[in-house]
Amino acid sequence: MTAVKRSKVPIYAVLIFFAVIYLMPVYVMLVTGLKSFDEVTLPRMWHLPQGLHFDGFAEAFQHLWPNLRNSLLLTIPATIISSMLGSLNGYVLSKWKFPGSDILFPLMLFGMFIPYQSILIPLVQFMQGVGLYGSIAGLALVHIVYGIPITTLIFRNYYAEIPTEMVEAARVDGANIMGIYWHVLFPLSLPGFVVVVIWQFTNIWNEFLFGVTLTSPDSQPITVALQNLAGSQIVEWNVQMAGALLTALPTLLVYIFLGRYFIRGLLAGSVKG
């Protein structure tokens, strides 16, 4: 192992300092979550737990399990459907441009930047009108619709990189539009799908505003349940921190194992929020 160049020591010092700050909340979540009920006192917040206690996790899990299930039932179908829609839209908008498609595209993109408060009142009325208010299916529909802009954007940019000559060649061979998509573009789409699926999974899992305004207690996603758990005065801090970790775990695992693709989605012009 070669020694670190002495001139770089201050750089490492600053980087490590920031790394400690970034990890501090995780440390607090872990040590608080693993403490027993009587150990969670305000002055001893930073101390390591005396032995591992999983009662906090057990109680948090008991509270959050139905909502964890809701979130899975919501996130998985919504992610798959919105990715498929985005792939088809991206294919059309990159390989089969039609008059006006270059105006249509930014008009669609605008939908991913709007504050969702500005569509929330009609959305609630609409969901009540069609009888989907308070259901997981209704919430999934909402995430599919408002996921169209971002999934279309990522796939359009992804397909723009695939040479149009391949489409032309298949066309000359007599393949039709769907045939070209299915036999030429789709088999090349795996990396694009990985980026979009990770992005949508993370965003839908983490979402809160739609979750809190469009659901009934039975259909609340885990973020809403965590907020309710944390908002009630009687719940111990170790249960809250364990609950926060449980809520964070699925997206955190995705990030740790597939971080490369997560960052690619991030830089593809996509946005959190």
Binding site: Y22, P25, N206, M241, A244, T247, A248, Y255, I256
Partner: peptide
Amino acid sequence: RTIYLFPMALSFVVTGVVWRWL
């Protein structure tokens, strides 16, 4: 890089709950 970027993967709700405690 992984350490600086991981909070992006979390929900604002998780961030809010943890920092409220901090």
